[in-house]
Amino acid sequence: MAALGDLVAIDDRTVLVLGQELDVGHDQPDVANALAHRAGDTLVLVDTGVTAAFRAALREAADRVGPWSRALVLTTHGHLDHVANNDLADELGVPAEHYVPAADLDQMRDPASYWVSSFDRITGLAPLPAPSALAGQVVSLFQPMRPFGATTRTYEERPLERIRIGSQRFTGWTFADGAVRVLRSQGHCAGHVIVHLRDHGVLHLSDEGNGACGAMADADQLKIQTVLGAVALLFEENEAAILTDGHTFAVRRGAAAVSHLDGLLEQATALQAAALGLTGESGRVRPSAFTARYAEAVAGLGVGGANPNAMFTAMMAVNQLRELGLRPESAEPDAPWSRPALHDPGPHSRP
Rank of each mutant, 00 (worst) to 15 (best):
L264W: 05
Q267R: 15
Q272N: 11
E296Y: 10
A270V: 10
Q272K: 14
A257E: 06
A299V: 12
L264Y: 08
T279K: 03
P287N: 06
G300H: 09
Q267M: 12
G283H: 06
Q272D: 14
E266Y: 10
A257H: 01
A275G: 03
E281K: 10
V285S: 02
V258P: 02
E296Q: 14
A292V: 12
V285E: 04
L271C: 06
E296M: 10
A268H: 02
L301I: 04
E281M: 12
A295T: 15
R286Q: 14
Q267G: 14
L301H: 01
R286M: 11
L261A: 05
A295N: 13
L301A: 05
L271K: 00
T291G: 06
G300T: 04
T291I: 07
T279H: 02
S259H: 13
H260A: 13
L278E: 12
L261K: 05
S259Y: 08
G277I: 03
S259E: 15
V258K: 05
A274R: 04
Q272Y: 10
L278K: 00
F290V: 03
T269H: 11
G300E: 01
E281D: 15
R284F: 07
G283Q: 08
T269Q: 14
Q267E: 09
G283W: 06
L265C: 08
L265E: 06
T269L: 11
A289K: 14
A292H: 12
T291K: 06
A274Y: 02
G300P: 00
G277K: 13
A274D: 00
H260W: 15
L264D: 02
A268C: 09
A257C: 06
A289G: 14
G300A: 04
V258I: 11
L301M: 01
P287H: 05
H260P: 06
L264F: 08
T269F: 11
A295W: 09
G263L: 02
A289Y: 11
V258T: 07
A297M: 03
G300D: 02
L264I: 06
D262K: 15
L261Y: 06
A270E: 12
F290L: 04
P287T: 09
G263C: 04
A289C: 11
A273D: 15
A275P: 00
Y294S: 00
L261E: 04
E281A: 15
V298A: 06
A295L: 11
L265S: 10
H260R: 15
S288F: 11
L261N: 05
A295M: 12
L264E: 02
Q272M: 15
L301W: 00
A275V: 00
A275W: 00
A297E: 01
R293E: 14
A275F: 00
S282I: 08
A299L: 10
L264H: 09
F290Y: 05
R293C: 09
